[in-house]
Design a binder for these strands. Structure first.
Lengths: 238, 238
DNA sequence: GAAATCAAAACAGTATACATTATAGACTTA
DNA sequence: TAAGTCTATAATGTATACTGTTTTGATTTC
């Protein structure tokens, strides 16, 4: 039931940072099955390094909410409906403001990147390429988020968005949802081009509300029963 | 220039958690001098344990922004004026909403605790007891924050508030500032008692704006020049 | 006396070995 | 057959040792 993920050392810096990057990317790309467990010693063996850097990286991901540590390996957290709505609440509070910032600070190069990502998403939605759509979506968000000059704001947003994104991966391949997202990206992009901070604020608000509604509509209401049992152990208040 | 901090093992759970708690409390209480460095091996020796749990705890604190890791031990981060204003921006976005939540969910016991903390702060301000004032302040905040049902929201707030609190420690002993804070606590408390979410929202907004203004007014504008040099190395985007 | 180079110490990073714990699965018993 | 207990094992937690790098300080030379 586990196994076939291949890790390789990427990026720069010390081993911990390399492993961290690699594992986080794997999670973000949805390549980690829900029940799958990550074991430090296995990954270490695969990379030809010792446990400690791997363990450090995994524990960092736990602290950031990307993983939960159990006594039996690290796995993806199983978010309850409440968790999801909590995360969306924080996003509703932060992202409109951040978008307004981006509307002021995005430069020509950034706008070009955004437009490219937007078109790519549109094309992916037309051809039904879920992976490409997902990638374009991430590129779009990373671009405008990178223009936000308040690092703590943008990093907090990125983290929370990642947390729900992992769960939303399947809903993103839903065709009507893709259409809604593409429309939202277009509206946002227009606000950015016009450097209209107010419009960016409003449209981001709308965008997130849409995302949450779509998610709640598509997500199986069955989950909630056994949610508590499965989930969080070592994730405690720390 | 370093040394005299005494650590002892507290709390429960594994060694890492115990060390984490202890060090974080030390930081939160302002018992760590700005230039002081924390070295894993020293703390480990003092506690009679090995480096690794201590190292884990310190790195967790780095990830959470409480410390920065340099090549020469862990120290407090030196926040620039921009950092401070970035943190306050996030707090302005989150805390009013959280206060509104608390106005709905605080129970009688919570209100009692709040009132006690408020009176304690008032007494401390009157007698000029800075430590007691600081404690009462923390108790007040922890209480209403604990009533917020969105854990991710309250934890994010707590973390950012802690970050600036470390820097604000000195401004909190400023008499006029204490008066402003006491007034703000009273206003907030009244909104909580009336279970008036809107009033809580507005008053928290006002409270934070006041706090930021007070800080900017009292903080030395000299710092900004050499800020970049001193600060963040290993704190990178990770 | 000042500047530059070199050496030693201090500390983080990494590796390996040992201890502890919780879970899964088997085995026993009712 | 089902329920409970016990044991073996898998995985984390902790300890110790070693490596590499950076900083500081001392010594030498100009």
């Amino acid at each position: 039931m586990t196994e076939p993920i291949e890790f390789k050392r990427i990026g720069e810096g010390n081993l911990r940072a390399q492993v961290y990057q690699q594992v986080r990317l794997t999670i973000q790309r949805g390549e980690l099955a829900p029940g799958q467990k990550l074991v430090d010693v296995d990954i270490a063996a695969q990379l030809g390094i010792s446990r400690m850097p791997v363990r450090d990286a995994l524990m960092q991901l736990v602290h950031e909410g990307y993983l939960v540590g159990t006594t039996r390996g690290f796995t993806l957290p199983t978010l309850t409906a409440t968790d999801i709505s909590n995360i969306f609440e924080v996003r509703r509070l932060l992202e409109p403001r951040a978008a307004a910032h981006a509307a002021r600070t995005l430069d020509a190069a950034g706008l070009k990147t955004l437009e490219a990502a937007r078109q790519e998403a549109e094309a992916a939605a037309a051809t039904g390429d879920a992976d490409l759509f997902f990638q374009a979506n991430s590129a779009f968000r990373n671009c405008w988020l990178g223009a936000v000059e308040n690092d703590r704001l943008s990093q907090t947003i990125a983290r929370f968005a990642d947390h729900v994104l992992v769960v939303r991966l399947k809903t993103l391949s839903h065709q009507p949802t893709q259409a809604v997202i593409v429309a939202g990206m277009r509206a946002l992009y227009e606000a950015f081009v016009k450097r209209d901070a107010v419009a960016a604020y409003d449209r981001m608000t709308h965008f997130i509300q849409n995302a949450e509604e779509r998610f709640m509509k598509l997500s199986p209401p069955s989950q909630q029963a056994n949610d508590e049992a499965v989930s969080i152990r070592r994730q405690g208040k720390s």
